[in-house]
Structure formats: C-alpha cells, structure tokens
Design a binder for these strands. Structure first.
Lengths: 238, 238
DNA sequence: CGAAAGATTGACTGAGTTCAACTGAAGTGG
DNA sequence: CCACTTCAGTTGAACTCAGTCAATCTTTCG
C-alpha cells in the first residue's frame, strides 16, 4: 500500500478559492511566485495537517474540503475553534509569531490542500505591503471575534451558544454545490458539541428541542437549518 | 468644578514604560515624531477611555496605572479580558482592522495615559517595518493566547480558572514598587469574578479555600500570593 | 456619623455533566 | 451477501458544580 496522500498540481491563479482567500491581495507576479514554490496534496478524511505544540514549517491553503481547527484541553477534550473551508489559510499565525502551533488541524473530509514553505510565505509578507496589510487586518479583526467568543462561552447558556454556532456554521456550509437552498451541516455530534463547548448528550437534547421548535430538521447526522430567524431568537442576540 | 481630566506632558523617550512597550521597535527619530503628535492626560480612577462599539480615533499608551479591558455580555455583565499596565498599548487592533472597538477600557486607579491620533499611528505603522513586524507578531501571538483562554473557559472548572487567573495576575501586579516580595493583587471581588468568568459569591468561597490551603492570604480586598507552586497544582497545569 | 458600596455567609435551585444502557448505521472480512 | 464488529447517536436517571437569592457584616468616604 502507498501512503494515504497523493500529490497533484494546481496553479493559484486557477484556484477557484483564490479570490476568497487572503492571497487576493497579491498581484499576478506575486501569485505566480507563490504558485511555483507551493506543493499540493490530496488528503483523506481524518488526516492531521499539523499538531498543537509543533513548529510550523510553512502555511496551508485549502483548495477543496473542510478542516477542523481545535485545541486539546488537559483531559484530551477537543475545543474546536473553527471549521475552515475552501480558500482558508492555516498556520500562518504561529509562523509569524514564531510560536509553536497553538492548535491542531484535521481534515473533516477528503481535501486538496496546498503547502507553501515558510521562506516563501515570509518573503511575500515582506515584499507585498498590501498582503501584509490584508493579514494584519484579518488578524486584528479575529481578535475581536475571539473576545466575543470568549464572552459568549463564559456568559451564555448552552442553548444560546448552540443557536449561535449553528448560525455561524451557515457560512461554513453555505454556497457550496446547492445554491441558495437551506444549508446542511455535516458534522458528528461530538464535533458539534466540541464547538459549542458542551457534552454530546446535552447537545443532542438541545437539537431535539430545536427540532420540536421547527428551527431545524435532521437527516441522520445532517442538520438542516429551516428557520434562521427562529434560531436568532433562541440565540438571544440583542 | 473643572473636568476630571488634567493634561500633562511626557516625552516618549523619557517614559519609563517605553522600553517595555510595543514602541520599543521604533528608532529615535520615529519616537520623537510620535512624542510630538501625542497628548497626555491624567485620568481618575473609574474613567472610561473608550466604549465598546464606538470608532477608534487613535491609540492609548499607558504611562502610569492599570486599566481594565472588558466586554459586556447581553445582560450587562462584564467579561474582563485583560488588565493592562504601564507600557500597554490600547485600541490599536480596532484601528487597524477598521472595526469599532470590541471592548471597553476603564481605569482601575488614577492613571497617566497618552493618546496618539489615528493618522500618526497608521503612518508610523507604514513607515517603520520593524514596528509593523512587532505589532504583527504581538497580535498573532495574542490569538494563540485567546484560543487557550477560550479552551480554559469552556473546559476547566472555576477553581482551576481562578488559580490560573491569580498566577497570570502576578505579571500584572508584579515588579512595581515592591521589588521581589510576594505580589499583592488589588482588584474588587466583582472584577476578579468577571475575569474568571464566575459569580462573585463563588469566587469568594474559592478564595476562602485557597486561604485555607495557604496558597494566598488576604488583607481586606488585597490578595497576596504566598505559594505559587501550590496554585499551579490547583490550576492543574500539565 | 450615616449612606453607600463592597465583602461574606448560608440556603436553595437548577442547568448541565456523567454514567450506563440501548439502538441504529456503517463498514469489514469470510 | 450475511454475520460480526465497531462507532455514532440516542435516551434515561442520578448527581453535582456553580449560580441565584437573601441576609448580614465591613469598609470606605463624603
């Protein structure tokens, strides 16, 4: 048997995700540079891109598929901070800060993901002030979001947190193959619980409530959001 | 009666906090530029530097005193994310991201704080690549820390979170006038509870436990850390 | 000195966790 | 293609950590 990974080749300029990614701050020449120094790999579902605590050697850019970003608690429980999708850039914060990874990344489905080595990334960061600005803005913005997440985690009951999480997942699972029909979330109950920060059993019971209230429907593991407005109310957003 | 604020004048180069601040990435000329465009104000205890949701007009640099940074939950409960001290730079993230403030800032004691207008800050950010790098690194690092905070908040019991918070507060309240004697934390129980993310009563009961275990002593509101090692154990840090 | 704010203690309550058992779906290999 | 294993999902019941409410005490400060 060969390795579970296969290599393939994709030009950044031809990448459907490029427009949505942080690389959209680059001009054609810079994009070509990056395109030439990167390598592209097909991962199977469940593979680890990088482990918390290790040193980054470069950055990952998702061409296709979803990736779960999480941190391990002291008893091994996963705290999922994001589900990254096409166009997502991973691992650049640890690289820039010269830290070890503060989180781990694992593919949630079969993925095509490009790897850009440290030197190329940092060089681009230095040479393109528009890219630099783009990253800087993004990171500063994310800090505001994280502060809100922390506050929610600390102050809101599980029910509200779940409603908020489901609404946010619309962005992650939206606009894919289906055009504007209702969005289906495809995560294990465990993963969803680890996003919300609760026990799996509690999560299931609350999903049941939301079904009864007709905010969502479920088909097996898939969750379909039927009534975003209802969910917003359940989320108790001001 | 006059305003509660008084103005004063301090040169950045002469600022005792400068070496510890993000501005230490600037050369003398750049520092002088900043020094000339800033204004310096004495605030009384309990004054608000900026409000969550408003637009930043510049950045604040703490010359003297402590400032509480917090976000309001939907029922008005404060979630304190940091206590900033001398040398701390406030409000630059919202400025850079072109967001409104995601948090509010309030002085915890009488403070001397400088204000640098938006244009000067952004100009310096553009002109000094070392300053830019310094900020970028800082922000990227902070995101890792926030992820850890979130995970702790979601997964750890209050007791451990309190122990962690007390240990972190050593950095905030350390090395001030007292040289290396045990550190005294001077916060209201409410503020401490809002840092830990718990109810005031719960906080008080746990402080009581920690006193019984001889990790800390208290004199009125002041908390003195007597046994950091014991606290580390209580924090259950791996 | 009296008012107001902060700190403390006790009793009660309940949201959410944990444990345990069971069901159903999805592979996997013979 | 079926039996078997395994993993994900679900449900019930007991328990517990932590929040809330209420009363009291203490400190601070005009």
């Amino acid at each position: 048997m060969r390795s579970k990974m296969q290599h393939t080749s994709i030009a950044c300029a031809a990448c459907r995700s490029q427009a949505k990614s942080l690389f959209n701050a680059l001009n054609n020449g810079q994009l070509t540079n990056i395109s030439e120094s990167k390598s592209c790999t097909v991962y199977r579902k469940g593979q680890i891109l990088f482990h918390e605590g290790t040193r980054p050697l470069g950055v990952f850019c998702i061409n296709q598929g979803k990736v779960k970003i999480y941190k391990l608690g002291y008893d091994g429980k996963e705290q999922i901070t994001t589900i990254a999708r096409e166009g997502g850039l991973l691992g650049y914060k640890a690289l820039i800060a010269e830290d070890t990874y503060s989180v781990s990344a694992e593919t949630l489905e079969d993925c095509t993901i490009c790897f850009l080595p440290k030197s190329s990334f940092l060089q681009t960061l230095q040479e393109s002030s528009s890219f630099n600005e783009r990253i800087m803005k993004q990171v500063c913005h994310e800090l505001g979001v994280m502060t809100e997440n922390l506050t929610n985690q600390a102050q809101r009951p599980v029910r509200e947190r779940l409603a908020i999480t489901l609404l946010k997942l619309r962005d992650t699972y939206g606009l894919d193959a289906h055009e504007d029909g209702p969005i289906e979330i495809n995560l294990t109950r465990d993963d969803l619980a680890n996003m919300v920060g609760t026990a799996t059993e509690t999560l299931i019971r609350l999903l049941h409530e939301f079904k009864k209230d007709e905010y969502i429907t479920t088909k097996g593991r898939k969750i379909r959001i039927e009534d975003p407005t209802g969910l917003s109310q359940a989320a108790n957003l001001y």
